[in-house]
Design a protein around this nucleic acid. Structure first.
Lengths: 327, 327
DNA sequence: GTCGATTATCGTAGCGCTGCGATTTTTACC
DNA sequence: GGTAAAAATCGCAGCGCTACGATAATCGAC
């Protein structure tokens, strides 16, 4: 920066001012400074800036995994919106491990971030005390319905379960199963299950639960379906914790020659791109992946400007059941 | 840090030393310092540290999109390996836009990163001159076969096309088509096409090319396949630029009652989880997603320690064709 | 042309840490 | 117990920038 100042024949302060608020320096100098910057290929040092101003343009985001189109779509949108406002995302993934979340929070907080975005409501005691000490704006996302730490942007997974259940019940199905990724890994899948279960049972139906060992795996899903149907041949509809699992179920049905929805109705969650093209098209639930990113950016930016009304802190974006041929 | 020093009754320097090289302070003080840290909940300021030491623990990674299991799997592995070595990933996605890459490079370089990972060999003139000025270690990944800026970890997409083509030719297919995501978006899909084309044509076959408008979309793929087969009913095998496109093709075949591979053989790329479970199981190519992450971490860490032999700078990890029932 | 009011520019003092050389303490050995 | 060498600790300068009050340049009105 000193070099730029020298070349442009102004003081370093003026260069600094130009970098931050260009319209506060006279057009004459602005031009000279800019050409000096170009000539030297000057890049400001973000760390020095952050240190000096004791605030950073970093926003931390912690997700369970980025290998999942749910979170990665949200991340992508969030990134776009925040970057255009001059912020830089610092992404951490917990790989569904609570202790890693704590570590990540420490690591991110040490950057003195302007904001922090967490997934869900489940945080360790340590994490909570760490967060309590700071006044960093916090957003909890991809869930709704519990008191949050600060801001909340998401939707109710319990409600999703309920919605799919109502759909199934309306279609006349009573003997159902829920095939899910492991609840330990994905607490929110558990919430969907509970919502589903309550509603089906309230309508006089039954729900048999099966959990995969780990993440969604179409092959394992197929095996699990086989076992399930051998034990419970009466089952006529299956709600899956996500579209990948539902796809695994559909492939297995195809392999066994079971018609969908004649022999088995199938519903997923996520409304991923391929759901519209399966044979038959898959009934699924569309979560507001992009909207979550957008609204988080909006809330965070408003909060950082200091004008976020208290009433806007909690946002339920809702979901949309997309009924297709598989049910 | 001052507070910690005061509470532990040592000088700030000692606390700093303890944070950086704990075994260089005596066990007695180490214990006192640690307990002071715990009591105060002290978190070091990464920016101040980075500024003072004029090197950062940041490693920038630029990918076309994180909404793609290819890159996100690599990112996840890379993250794990680098974080355990004390580095923090700064992720940027270009959304397949070259001018955004430039912007991202600027933004990341302003963090004075310890390393930079780019996807592919295609960079704008401006980006190149920006990178030439710095001596940051650079890795170009997910491709191989062209002279890189510095280090290269990937595989040859041209070779993949060739490999699939050989497989098709061996199976007796000569009248083929290549259905692809748009080459403008994904240059590497273009390389795969060229490899495929050369080999099929060398064997006396033909290849008809069809490109999707944008990203993989099973519905659009279905439509495209319909048109293609109406114009070229002689086609007997289709190579797809990735598994999602192949899935779209398979769904469309199922819808039209065309047997696979009887009427049409289908191959994908990516060997995604679901490929083993489709009906019939899909022939695909397994890219070394995780290995790329691992090896980048290894190379980068070696380089940062200053002991990377020149001979190790270029790494072709190769791929594996997984032949299944769809061909 | 002069004078106050604006607007533009500058100088200085940190931000919270690290690196290094200087100083103190501990250790090993005669 | 005394000494030199090794280990542990400390103090200070400075990383590259920003914030803010001080100073200088410019403007407008009479």
């Amino acid at each position: 920066m000193g070099e730029v100042a020298q070349l442009a024949d102004v003081s370093p302060s003026t260069v600094s001012l130009y970098m931050r608020r260009p319209d506060e320096v006279s057009p004459r100098r602005a031009e000279k400074i800019q050409s000096a910057i170009d000539r030297l290929g000057y890049l400001p040092n973000t760390m020095a800036g952050g240190l000096a101003s004791s605030r950073s343009n970093v926003i931390g985001v912690i997700v369970p995994t980025i290998t999942n189109s749910f979170f990665s779509a949200t991340l992508e949108t969030l990134e776009r919106h925040l970057r255009s406002a001059g912020y830089q995302l610092l992404i951490g993934n917990t790989e569904f491990d609570e202790s890693r979340e704590e570590e990540l929070i420490r690591s991110i907080m040490s950057w003195n971030p302007a904001g922090l975005v967490l997934t869900g409501f489940l945080h360790s005691r340590q994490s909570l005390s760490l967060l309590a000490k700071s006044d960093t704006p916090i957003v909890e996302m991809w869930d709704y319905g519990r008191p949050g730490l600060d801001m909340v942007v998401g939707f109710s997974h319990h409600a999703i379960g309920r919605q799919v259940a109502e759909h199934m019940v309306n279609k006349g199905y009573r003997r159902t199963a829920f095939i899910s990724t492991n609840f330990q890994r994905d607490v929110r899948a558990g919430d969907r299950y509970h919502g589903f279960c309550e509603t089906v049972e309230a309508a006089g139906g039954q729900v048999v639960l099966r959990q995969l060992a780990g993440r969604s795996d179409t092959a394992e899903t197929g095996r699990l379906l086989g076992e399930l149907m051998a034990e419970h041949p009466e089952i006529e509809a299956i709600c899956c914790s996500n579209d990948m699992v539902a796809l695994g179920v559909m492939f297995e049905c195809q392999r066994r020659g079971w018609s969908i929805p004649g022999r088995l109705a199938v519903a997923g969650f996520g409304n991923q791109d391929f759901t519209a093209s399966t044979v038959p098209p898959m009934t699924s639930v569309e979560p507001p992946r992009l909207e979550i990113g957008q609204h988080i950016a909006r809330l965070l930016l408003a909060r950082l400007k200091g004008n976020l009304p208290e009433t806007d802190k909690q946002l339920d974006l809702g979901v949309r059941l997309v009924a297709r041929g598989s049910t």
